[in-house]
């Protein structure tokens, strides 16, 4: 393949990856509704095998929703080092091994979590920028061409962010009950403050005494804003976190038995959660529907339930 043809092919690939893939990602690949996906996986953006690769294992490079549109460009210098491995200096090989190992570790251990994927963002961006800069220099391109390319990178990033924000609004628009921070017309404070307002007063108003033990579904705000006793619980993994470790609440128990465990053994009669968190576990939602009485829901979506007594009241 002659140099000119190779160059054309590379440009075509750049356009395909830089523009076509993000366009397809937002237009078709990313679902707006949970459908028949696992709610956990939908929430994390990894509800299908393809999405598990794009947003999960290779999230550092292709999770367009949260990361840049040009992170994948770092694959070019990595590929070049790999293709000329023997001729490369040990430090270049070492860095490629490190970056690849980091990519694999982050991808395997939580690439779907954009915060983990962001770990490599400064290095990815800096490496890509320096590589492009030097590549243009080596090819004898003008400063204008070089500047145009990196400016296009930045512009693509801006457009990608706009598409990402638009996608988040589209998801919220089809939600039956969008969280308060995603509701149309919400103020900045409402969007940023998803926490309960005056938790103590709200609990007192609904009859929860300061000494009542409450099952806290993964809401550490309970311990931060009150001095009240709680039992830490996460419905997503059905685990009670007790003095001697974790125990299941619902697995292997009927609704009646689970209610009895809470009420009679753990001396806990109330459950503090949010509709959004509870919905992540259909068995827990069923438990709330069948074995508990809803007491209150605050404007931010926090819910308070009372476990029914032995007479089902």
């Amino acid at each position: 393949m002659d140099g000119r043809r190779f160059s054309c092919m590379m440009w075509a690939l750049l356009v395909a990856f830089g523009v076509a893939l993000p366009a397809a990602y937002y237009a078709w690949l990313m679902p707006l509704e949970v459908g028949d996906m696992d709610p956990h996986l939908f929430e994390r953006g990894i509800g299908s095998p393809l999405l598990a690769w794009l947003n999960g294992y290779l999230g550092v490079l292709f999770n367009y929703r949260y990361l840049g549109a040009t992170n994948w460009l770092v694959l070019v210098p990595i590929g070049m080092v790999l293709a000329t491995w023997r001729r490369r200096a040990p430090w270049q090989r070492g860095l490629v091994v490190f970056y690849t190992a980091a990519l694999a570790l982050i991808g395997a251990m939580g690439g779907f979590n954009y915060r983990y994927a962001l770990t490599l963002q400064p290095l990815t961006v800096a490496t890509t920028c320096v590589f492009v800069w030097r590549a243009f220099d080596r090819k004898g391109r003008s400063a204008r061409e070089r500047g145009a390319f990196v400016a296009a990178m930045a512009l693509l990033g801006v457009l990608n962010s706009a598409a990402s924000i638009h996608y988040h609004f589209r998801v919220a628009s089809v939600m039956a009950a969008p969280p308060p921070e995603a509701r149309p017309g919400a103020t900045l404070t409402e969007r940023l403050d998803a926490g309960p307002e005056d938790l103590e007063r709200w609990l007192n108003a609904h009859g929860v005494r300061p000494t009542d033990t409450v099952l806290v579904n993964n809401l550490p705000v309970w311990y931060y804003r009150t001095q009240r006793p709680g039992i830490y619980f996460w419905c997503g993994s059905d685990q009670l976190f007790l003095r001697d470790g974790t125990h299941a609440l619902l697995a292997g128990r009927s609704m009646h038995e689970a209610a009895s465990l809470l009420r009679d053994t753990l001396h806990c009669r109330y459950i503090f959660s949010t509709g959004e968190l509870s919905a992540l576990s259909p068995p827990f939602t069923r438990f709330l529907d069948e074995a508990c009485v809803p007491l209150a829901t605050d404007p931010k979506g926090h819910t308070l339930h009372r476990v029914k007594d032995t007479f089902g009241r």
Binding site: L67, R115, C129, V130, W133, A151, V158, S164
Partner: peptide, 27 residues
């Protein structure tokens, strides 16, 4: 400060590319 060693304009574009993703805003 790192990118500035190559070029001052590159530092501007590089930082812009780093900060515009939605995830960085959430950060």
């Amino acid at each position: 400060s790192v990118l500035r060693q190559w070029d001052r304009a590159l530092a501007f574009v590089g930082v812009l590319t780093m900060v515009v993703p939605f995830g960085f805003a959430l950060l």
